[in-house]
Amino acid sequence: MLRLTNLNHDYDGHRVLGLKSFTLNQGEQALILGPSGSGKSTLLHLAAGVLRPSGGEVVVCGQSLGGLPEAALDRFRGRHIGLVYQRFHLLGALTAAANLALAQYMAGLPADSAAVSRALSAVGLQDKAQAYPHQLSQGQQQRVAIARALVNGPRLILADEPTASLDDANAEQVLDLLIAQAASRDATLLIATHDARVSMRIERCLELNARGMPA
């Protein structure tokens, strides 16, 4: 369901990523490991269609992202791909619930407050729906971000260092949520990390070296 073929990406004339083939089946969970600068984020951005590759193909749910025009790609991403970042992911001007509603709106989906409530309940923050990000702890913010990534029922969840800014307890909780929610929705989960706490939880992993090649 996620298929990367002959994928490579150049940045400022340097190859930052070169990947012959990588495939994840629907519902499968995997890690991308590697030192900082090994192209983990680039790989996620390419998979999310946030970045166009210098060469190769990205196929998500049978759809080749390279074949989509820009606006259609944005819409496809909004509906089928959930993204979680390390931090700064919530819009500070909006409440937790509004951040989720924004994801629906941006994806061109009808407003569905029941789905918002369900997603917030799933991360245990239904009582924080009207709280603004600055009123939440870092762990809570990351859980809201996960809820936002889940709210549109994505088939692919991509997380970029989701636990890096969190203490052990919060990291554990966030990781539990990601793994459990992805599994319960049969969504494919790909986490880029260099956090050892994460690597113990998911078996399959793609390790990249400093030149962006599989190690």
């Binding site: 946030v50 820009e70 993204l83 700064f88 924004l102 941006m106 061109g108």
Partner: peptide, 16 residues
């Protein structure tokens, strides 16, 4: 800038 990038990643088009 970051908020705008997040909006894009949530599916917002450049035009939006």
């Amino acid at each position: 800038r970051f908020d705008l990038a997040v909006m894009r990643s949530l599916g917002a088009s450049r035009g939006l």
